[in-house]
Design a protein around this nucleic acid. Structure first.
Lengths: 142, 142
DNA sequence: TATTGTTATACTCTATAACTATA
DNA sequence: TATAGTTATAGAGTATAACAATA
């Protein structure tokens, strides 16, 4: 009975840590912090109509989001525009430069990930990646 | 092309967060902090011959481990005994009480996990859990 | 001199609560 | 009065370096 598996939470945490380490040199080469990248990724599907919404979607809170947006906007990677309909809101959207930087980061990360999964056989790998995506999406929706 | 999957790191991180949330009420009911539990789990396979070794295995560092060990030892869940061979070292081992508390936490966590995976079909689930374990173990060994 | 366990210090990150501007 | 965005403050968590005991 000593051959028990680890808790799912522990395994997820170790793997998250490993991937963060693997992404670090890539993000550094593009001069973005991890959370900068997370925000860019979140914006990829489309502009966020409010910053609070963006905060929730990216897993930060609205106060910690501010310096990130300041930094990225200063570099011309995104734009904050007041919403004419409700001028309290600021719509956040990627610029072309932001989209390009994101694409470059992503392809490097995909390579790193492929290397990481290289020992799995193709069927296993496909199942694993698909289930992982499905479970994570379910969690994100809550 | 907008139907891209998320980065593995992001998915792992969201899932880790979700499992930590799911474990919280269980650990609270047993009056242990998350890192207390991690240390108990690490000790389950056998005593740690030094605290630094235990720190590395549990993913903390040796200084942050101290208050955890103090707490758990005070509750009689583990024991620190000086190593006669090298009296600088302190061997850390679970007590019976520690092992019992651990077993109780674990079975509750396994129920929570089963509930979390309930929508997967059995084959998928088996593959997913096995691959997850294998990948995480590979990462832990480094 | 080097290492184990420990303590102390400084630093970063995070959460909370105020503030402003709009509604 | 309530909400979006922002700023400021306090608290928790983390990393680093110093310390005592042993080798």
């Amino acid at each position: 009975m000593s051959e028990q598996r680890h808790d799912l939470g522990a395994s997820f945490a170790w793997l998250a840590r490993a991937m963060i380490k693997g992404e670090a040199p890539i993000l550094q080469a593009h001069d973005v912090e991890m959370w900068d990248y997370v925000v860019l990724v979140t914006l990829e599907r489309g502009p966020a109509s409010t910053q609070s919404e963006l905060a929730a979607a990216s897993g930060r809170d609205k106060t910690r989001l501010i310096p990130i947006l300041d930094r990225l906007e200063a570099r011309g990677l995104l734009r904050r525009t007041p919403d004419p309909a409700d001028r309290r809101n600021r719509v956040v959207a990627l610029t072309t430069a932001g989209r390009e930087l994101l694409a470059s980061c992503r392809s490097a990360i995909r390579e790193m990930e492929a290397e990481f999964l290289v020992d799995l056989d193709p069927d296993e790998r496909a199942t694993f990646v698909a289930v992982l995506e499905r479970l994570a999406d379910a969690v994100r929706e809550r």
